[in-house]
């Protein structure tokens, strides 16, 4: 009897509708207004790579040990170095990082002994050309320039 009454008065549907109506209230809106309002990115986020430089001298921290290139499963990092005749130390010449093949697994970052290579919080990595996804040393040191939208 009760079930028939419940069926007649659409109790099941109304209960569901009550849930949806409860969420009509503006304080329950959850949408992020992305370009205007940027999301908070976690500190450990693995996004765009960066090759850290010493902030005082402007010299790169990378010691050209090639460990990151060896650790990468996709083998997309190419490090070339040159022996400095004066100091007899290896110096970094070129560093290319093919973002289009990177899966942001973080293995390269873990492998780096001096924390020179780091995956940062930048996440806007789109580019108009395929070549644009291949980052050279300068790009890696400066980092991408995020576009700020204004309304």
């Amino acid at each position: 009897m009760l079930t028939i009454l419940k069926k007649i008065f659409f109790v099941d549907l109304i209960r569901g509708l009550l849930v949806t109506f409860r969420y009509q209230h503006p304080k329950n809106i959850y949408t992020e207004q992305y370009p205007a309002e940027r999301p908070k990115i976690a500190e450990r986020y693995r996004g765009a790579p960066r090759l850290n430089i010493n902030p005082e001298t402007g010299e790169t921290l990378c010691i050209a040990c090639n460990l990151c290139a060896l650790a990468c499963p996709e083998q997309l990092i190419v490090v070339t170095s040159e022996r400095n005749e004066v100091t007899k130390r290896k110096e970094l010449t070129k560093f290319t990082y093919d973002l289009s093949r990177c899966m942001f697994c973080g293995l390269c970052e873990d492998a780096c002994p001096v924390d020179a290579l780091e995956l940062t919080q930048d996440f806007e990595l789109a580019s108009y050309t395929r070549e644009g996804a291949i980052w050279d040393r300068q790009m890696l040191e400066e980092g991408p320039k995020p576009i700020w939208y204004r309304y």
Partner: peptide, 20 residues
């Protein structure tokens, strides 16, 4: 994201334990 730095393809654990 806060724990391991990625949201979907997390690569959260390493062989032998944890990285983070």
């Amino acid at each position: 994201e806060a724990y391991c730095g990625a949201r979907l393809t997390t690569h959260a654990f390493r062989i032998g334990g944890l990285q983070y």
